[in-house]
Design a protein around this nucleic acid. Structure first.
Length: 204
DNA sequence: CTACGGATTTTCT
DNA sequence: GAAAATCCGTAGT
């Protein structure tokens, strides 16, 4: 088990999105670990990407972190109630990021069940087991990733990623989700996911 | 199983 | 003032 270092994130978003599959996202809250294996990601590739918050070089306070060093977190609040967790990639000054869309629970299952549904893991319905972390807003809730996680260094100790020996898996790519306003960029196959994994939010 | 609409607040125009 | 990188419950097939 090794923590991913700055070098890992200092590459283009598409490469990082691909290589994040199978890695573990680890969150430490009150000294206790909650973790999940990443199974679905999306790359937001730069100022030419009409789906990106930093399209056309927009540089508002919200997206400022994305222009900084790679390996930091970008957490935004959306639709008045959900958070989405992203990882800043690419060299400093070049805005690129990877959205973490879905993951498979690994540890801290009790805490996840409480964070998502307010009840014990053993009492979850079958459906709810999958719904713990099968979407960007859901996994943020499960791992207690909120506004205060924005701008965190992922090479630190509260929120980070680790590499493990994983079973072999096949990677598929497809169009990104929820960006119908993005004209031609809607169709770019910049969503990466693990084939046949039950926690992937959208198949195909 | 799919389809649809409502929730709710930050962010930028 | 409008839109938003989502989720959930309800209704219909």
């Amino acid at each position: 088990m090794t923590k991913l270092t700055r070098d890992f994130y200092t590459r283009d978003a598409l490469s990082v999105a691909r290589d994040l599959l199978g890695k573990r996202l680890v969150r430490i809250v009150d000294g206790r670990e909650i973790s999940a294996m990443i199974v679905e990601t999306e790359a937001y590739m730069g100022i030419d990407d009409k789906a990106a918050h930093f399209y056309a070089g927009r540089r508002t306070p919200r997206v400022e972190i994305i222009y900084g060093k790679p390996g930091f977190s970008y957490v935004f609040f959306i639709y008045g109630m959900h958070h989405c967790f992203n990882i800043v990639t690419g060299p400093e000054g070049i805005p690129q990021a990877v959205l973490i869309r879905a993951a498979e629970p690994v540890s801290g299952l009790e805490r996840m069940a409480q964070n998502r549904f307010g009840k014990a893991y053993a009492r979850l319905e079958k459906k709810q087991l999958i719904q713990l972390t099968n979407g960007p807003g859901k996994l943020c809730a499960a791992l207690a990733i909120h506004r205060d996680c924005n701008g965190m260094d992922l090479c630190g100790d509260e929120l980070f990623l680790t590499d493990h020996d994983a079973e072999a898996f096949e990677v598929l790519s497809s169009r990104r989700i929820g960006i119908d306003y993005a004209e031609e960029a809607r169709e770019f196959p910049w969503r990466m996911y693990i084939k046949d994994n039950r926690y992937v939010s959208v198949k195909g």
